[in-house]
């Protein structure tokens, strides 16, 4: 049996123009163009390397509205074998715990995976919650900030990974199945190939699962299944700053600036 790898994909709005529903405090996604979370592409790339090294079969999963099918087509274009879009209105408004629950249950239904890879965080909320929460639901070993898979031992069912913290490199060996958060910008995600993109049309490799397939209790889903809720949204208060623009040609302005810095007493030497 060959190695089976699952990659989690988040379909995120690609814009700085945020709009919120003031009632629920959740994002309004309509009208905002979306992309695959760029950090997930590092996970996709790492998974594809495992495909090359170990002949792994790689499945992408995404819990998202139907439009995310475009994102799954994109990663299939990169070389992912097949994909499951987990999509249902009852999932709307999920916080990270409710999202991780659905993803964990999806993994359970997939069943025989060895590794589940996720981007370390997303560009839209950057909580970095999902990989560890999924591990929490499934009580599986997990590791964050992985930048390299050193070795997969299919007989012993272990994976050895490297990760970088602030001041050290660490190598860990995890029993599979295991969950990995792939470090941001740790890989060079490959481009989409036309050949792979054609597969989307020819082979129809994307399945859609709704809650009909998963059969989960609605109390565990969406807003109901989310222990956290947004009670209100406000503007970030500004930090009071002097906002003084020093006029004049650069040489004069810089001299004036140095005088100001002296007055403020912030320089590490006497003026």
């Amino acid at each position: 049996m060959s190695l089976k790898v699952v990659v989690g994909i988040k379909w995120v709005p690609n814009t700085q123009a945020v709009r919120f529903d003031p009632k629920t405090g959740t994002l309004i996604r309509e009208g905002v163009p979306s992309i695959v979370n760029p950090h997930d592409l590092d996970a996709v790339e790492l998974a594809l390397q495992l495909k090359e090294r170990y002949g792994a079969k790689v499945t992408a999963i995404s819990m998202a509205p139907p439009s995310a099918i475009k994102g799954l087509e994109h990663v299939i274009g990169m070389g992912i074998d097949d994909a499951i879009l987990v999509s249902d209105r009852v999932f709307a408004g999920s916080d990270t715990l409710a999202t991780s629950y659905v993803i964990a249950q999806t993994l359970k239904r997939i069943g025989d995976f060895d590794l589940a890879l996720f981007g370390q965080e997303t560009i839209d909320s950057s909580t970095a919650h999902i990989p560890a929460q999924v591990a929490g639901w499934l009580e599986l070993p997990y590791m964050y900030y992985v930048d390299r898979v050193e070795e997969v031992d299919e007989k012993q069912r272990t994976v050895t990974v490297r990760r970088m913290l602030e001041d050290r490199l660490e190598w860990y060996q995890l029993k599979m199945p295991a969950i990995l958060g792939v470090a941001m910008k740790s890989q060079k995600p490959r481009p989409v190939s036309i050949y792979n993109k054609l597969r989307v049309r020819m082979e129809n490799p994307i399945q859609v699962w709704s809650n009909k397939e998963l059969g989960l209790d609605p109390r565990c889903l969406g807003l109901k299944g989310s222990p956290t809720l947004v009670s209100k949204v406000t503007w970030t208060p500004e930090v009071p700053r002097k906002k003084q623009v020093i006029e004049g040609p650069p040489s004069e302005a810089v001299k004036k600036l140095v005088e100001k810095l002296c007055e403020e007493g912030v320089l590490p030497f006497e003026c």
Partner: peptide, 9 residues
């Protein structure tokens, strides 16, 4: 929550 201009409670 998203862009740093907003704060979510």
């Amino acid at each position: 929550p998203f862009a740093a201009i907003l704060l979510a409670y």
